[in-house]
């Protein structure tokens, strides 16, 4: 492996991203070449300097603050239960409405007066002496329709 190739691979070599045969080639070349070794030392120095930067301080109450800021989310099981409860409530309300309406209609039917024909009204009034009904008139109203 020549210097150009080695220099090109030094970063990946440092990051331990080279395959084993390439690693051996780079190591061999570094043993033999002073210029490339100087490059390698410079890279290692840079990494040491980067790792030497102080990390940002972590607030000891960081997780507490986050937990306090969470908006509660309904859990999976609870969500299912909630949906079932809503469905049951809806069905109950629907059935209750249906049966209430049905019973109201039945009651109305029960309270309704029997049908009164015009002929019977005339006869009733005649019985009470309020009017006189001719036979022809009665026949006209009781005549069967074709």
């Amino acid at each position: 492996m020549n210097c150009r190739m080695t220099i090109r691979r030094l970063s990946a070599f440092q990051d331990k991203e080279l395959a084993a045969p390439q690693v051996r080639q780079v190591e061999l070349h570094l043993r033999e070449c002073g210029a490339c070794r100087a490059e390698w030392d410079a890279l290692r120095d840079l990494e040491q300097r980067l790792l030497g930067l102080p990390p940002a301080a972590v607030d000891p109450f960081f997780s507490t603050r986050i937990m306090a800021g969470l908006r509660p989310r309904p859990a999976g099981k609870n969500r299912l239960l909630q949906a079932a409860a809503f469905a049951a409530l809806f069905i109950t309300v629907f059935l209750a409405g249906f049966f209430l309406q049905k019973s109201a209609l039945d009651r109305q039917d029960a309270e309704r007066l029997p049908a009164v024909t015009f002929t019977s009204v005339l006869l009733e009034r005649q019985d009470l002496g309020l009017l006189t009904v001719q036979e022809d008139t009665l026949r006209q109203f009781t005549r069967k329709r074709p």
Binding site: L53, P55, A56, V58, F62, S63, I66, M67, L70, P72, R73, P74, A75, G76, K77, N78
Partner: peptide, 26 residues
């Protein structure tokens, strides 16, 4: 957490907070 134990999210916060802060800070 998704099963309803929101408090367990703190495990993830504690596990990753340092690295996330470090990453964002850098």
């Amino acid at each position: 957490v998704l099963g309803g134990r929101d408090r367990d999210f703190e495990i993830l916060v504690r596990r990753y907070s340092q690295r996330i802060i470090h990453f964002v800070a850098r």
